[in-house]
């Protein structure tokens, strides 16, 4: 029985925060296994479906990417509230990875390309009513919300993702073999 209280398929979601989509592409590399997944689980929220709002009562959510801005932060919190199991998918979510390389610089320096002819730049130029403000640092997911599992790799390859997803669908803990616990 899933959290929504039905014996239907598992309610499954994938979320993309501050990442390159490579983890989602690796997920798509499941290829024919996607058909098997579609039979066992309902994809209730994902880059690949048109649901516009993260739904209530999700059983398993895989999260790609680091938390880089206020919108990511709000999304991470909502994902946590509404998901039974949250898994960090890929090195950006697990450690911050490439996305956190910007942490070596102050945000204002990172925003340097955004400038007006009158010399205003960065925060003084950008309209935060239209676009979300960057956080001072890009953070791994578990620094923002409690996380139940980790699938490292940049990206984790499809076999690794499949191991994790199959365990989750069976309601078992994710116990990746040592060879599947590498970074990069």
């Amino acid at each position: 029985m899933n959290k929504a209280g039905t014996t239907d398929r598992i309610r499954f979601a994938t979320v993309w925060l501050g990442g390159c989509s490579g983890c989602h592409m690796s997920f798509l590399d499941l290829d024919e296994r996607l058909v098997e997944l579609a039979e066992a689980a309902e994809l209730v929220f994902s880059p690949f479906v048109d649901t516009k709002e993260f739904p209530e009562g999700v059983d398993v959510t895989l999260v790609e990417g680091a938390v880089t801005n206020r919108a990511n932060l709000a999304m991470a919190e909502r994902v946590r509230e509404r998901s039974r199991i949250v898994v960090s998918l890929g090195d950006c979510a697990v450690t911050g990875n490439v996305t956190s390389l910007r942490n070596l610089f102050p945000v204002e320096a990172v925003l340097a390309p955004f400038r007006a002819e009158d010399g205003r730049s960065g925060k003084a130029f950008l309209d935060y009513t239209s676009i979300p403000e960057l956080l001072p640092r890009a953070l791994p997911l578990h620094q923002v919300i409690p996380v139940d599992g980790y699938v490292p790799g940049c990206p984790p390859d499809a076999d690794r993702i499949w191991e994790a997803v199959r365990a989750l669908l069976r309601g078992e803990p994710v116990a990746l073999a040592e060879s599947m616990r590498t970074f990069g």
């Binding site: 390389l101 910007r102 610089f105 990172v110 239209s130």
Partner: peptide, 14 residues
Amino acid sequence: ARFHVTEFRGFEQF
């Protein structure tokens, strides 16, 4: 009508 891109990762800087 405007299309707002709302994510930025800063590769050109870091």
